[in-house]
């Protein structure tokens, strides 16, 4: 069971209290009706599946309830960094260095 650092409570907590919420940094288009079918398809369904660091959304669903973003290694599974929703994607290379 992974440990996850909650960016709001600044505490490291068991994965059991959290829920995965899909890939991060995919904003809902401001005006979906202006999108072509292909653009809408890409927004809805097309996702990358990287080996290595993956930007993800998680929710501390049984704690503070906040959605937040995370960078997690899909090989070793562990989180390298978590950050509040709305904050820019951190420099992942740097994040990896920091986590080592």
């Amino acid at each position: 069971m992974l440990l996850i650092h909650g960016p709001y409570c600044d505490d490291t907590l068991p994965e059991l209290e959290f829920a995965y919420a899909g890939a991060a940094h995919i904003a809902r288009p401001a005006d979906p009706m202006s999108l072509s079918d292909e653009e809408w398809r890409d927004f809805l369904y097309v996702r990358s599946n990287p080996r290595g660091l993956h930007a993800e959304r998680w929710r501390y669903i049984h704690g503070c309830g906040r959605f937040f973003n995370a960078s997690r290694d899909t090989v070793g599974d562990k989180f390298s960094v978590t950050y509040k929703a709305g904050k820019p994607r951190p420099d992942l290379e740097k994040a990896v260095q920091m986590s080592k």
């Binding site: 919420a21 959304r57 929710r59 309830g65 906040r66 959605f67 929703a85 709305g86």
Partner: peptide, 8 residues
């Protein structure tokens, strides 16, 4: 609902 409210 929370997802849309908090993140969108």
């Amino acid at each position: 609902m929370e997802d849309y409210l908090q993140t969108e």
